[in-house]
């Protein structure tokens, strides 16, 4: 019972802090680009503004269109409950493993892509197509990254993986180097970050994620934005759990342990945010036709990680 409460608390924390991480990344990007930026709390202000407005919905919208933001947001919340963000004991981690996690992201993607096609505008279907294009390459890549970790730890359950990786005698896994590079590429693509998509774009023809959600407004848009922030949070947390697993606490550690866990995790997230902003600042957006190449590279690197694991036996 204690475990569940503890895990639930951490999931809620992740959900609440997700816009903060997004704000932090944006702020870092602004600093790196010699801008002042809107402050780390800007995403919260945007959410509050959007929530208050009336939802404008196109005439041809079906119930699917209105349900999709809730499904997407719910899926991301569930993901937050599976991924160990602060502590190893995530509430639902024992019920769904990494493969289910990949399936969960796919579920969110399929819903939002279907919703994008619902109104029947040119941009919506264009965005849906592009999003699925990215998904069909990044999903297997993510799965292969998880497989590499799973082979090392003999488990597909995230808490077990993180536990094994964190409590080992300091062993270096060469295969994780491949997995790490591949995962970074997947993270950028999945979260509509710069080499693949531009979160701040206003040019319709280059948009991917934004093109899908063009028809959304008010609370629906707020949920989608929040879900995107949460997705970034989830992915960063996965990356930290797989590649920098130290500092996560267990439920048994009590409130003090929790506090320590929160502090270390915040520090790790903050530095991950800086790294992300740095990557985004130094790289240029790829043409859309180069995106499959980028993702195929990520996928094949992940596969290579698996191979290296098999070959070196470590």
């Amino acid at each position: 019972m204690n475990d569940i409460l503890f895990g639930g608390f951490q999931a809620l924390l992740a959900i609440a802090a997700a816009p903060l991480l997004l704000g932090w990344v944006d702020q870092c990007r602004a600093w790196l680009q010699n801008r002042r930026g809107a402050g780390v709390l800007q995403p919260y202000r945007v959410l509050r503004k959007l929530m208050r407005k009336d939802a404008v919905i196109a005439h041809g919208a079906s119930p699917l269109f209105r349900a999709a933001p809730y499904v997407q947001f719910g899926a991301m919340c569930l993901a937050a409950a599976i991924i160990p963000v602060v502590s190893i004991t995530a509430p639902l981690a024992a019920a769904a493993d990494t493969i289910a996690l990949v399936g969960l992201f796919a579920l969110a993607r399929v819903f939002i892509a279907l919703a994008a096609m619902d109104i029947g505008t040119a941009f919506g279907s264009l965005g849906a197509r592009r999003e699925m294009l990215i998904g069909f390459l990044s999903e297997p890549a993510l799965l292969m990254v998880f497989f590499t970790a799973s082979l090392i730890c003999q488990s597909t359950l995230l808490p077990t993986i993180v536990g094994t990786l964190a409590h080992r005698e300091l062993v270096i896994y060469p295969s994780l180097a491949f997995a790490g590079v591949a995962f970074t590429m997947v993270l950028l693509a999945e979260n509509a970050r710069i080499p693949i998509d531009n979160p701040a774009t206003h040019l319709e023809l280059t948009m991917i994620h934004e093109a899908m959600v063009l028809e959304y407004s008010a609370r629906h848009l707020a949920l989608i934005e929040w879900a995107s922030a949460l997705k970034l949070m989830n992915f960063t947390a996965i990356g930290l759990a797989l590649f920098v697993p130290w500092g996560l606490t267990a439920a048994a550690a009590g409130p003090q342990g929790l506090a320590v866990g929160i502090v270390t995790t915040s520090l790790k997230l903050a530095s991950a945010g800086v790294a992300l902003a740095l990557i985004e600042t130094v790289s240029a957006k790829l043409r859309i036709f180069r995106a499959p190449e980028f993702l195929a590279t990520a996928f094949l690197l992940a596969v290579l990680g698996l191979l290296v694991h098999q070959l070196l036996g470590s």
């Binding site: 499904v71 947001f73 569930l78 639902l92 019920a95 769904a96 493969i99 289910a100 969960l104 003999q154």
Partner: peptide, 20 residues
């Protein structure tokens, strides 16, 4: 090693969607 519980999964996502 591995656990997958579709019931917990469905309940989780259902509760999350409903609560939101």
């Amino acid at each position: 090693r591995a656990v997958y519980s579709p019931l917990a999964f469905a309940a989780g996502i259902g509760v999350a969607v409903l609560a939101v």
